[in-house]
Amino acid sequence: MLLVDVIVAILLTSGMFFMFVGAIGLLRLPDFYTRLHATGKCDTLGEGLIIVGLIIYHLFHYPGTPLVTVKLLFLIIFIFIANPTAIHAIVKAAYRRGLKPWKWGEGRR
């Protein structure tokens, strides 16, 4: 049980680390497109790692309700499909609108 808890803790912490990096990237990066790089990728992996941690925790501490783990698994699949699609939709809207990507040496926007 202790080993399971350690693995779960590692997964949750690394997931939180990537979410945190995504938030820092949102604040530090210079323009709209680059900010989406940070939020899009880091949120996807961060949420994925956190949910994997929850799955393992549930599987070992509450083995009587396996359907919950299947539902969590579906959450991961849908996040991994929906997240990049949503980013693509936002970026496409911005590009159509004529927002120019930031180039090296320009000021922050």
Binding site: F17, F18, V21, I24, G25, R28, L29, P30, D31, Y33, T34, H37, A38, K41, C42, P101, W102, K103, W104
Partner: peptide
């Protein structure tokens, strides 16, 4: 991305 975001100088050079 984590490396580029946390690096003090932010080594990015975006292009399309």
């Amino acid at each position: 991305v984590a490396y580029r975001v946390l690096h003090p100088k932010m080594p990015i050079d975006p292009l399309v």
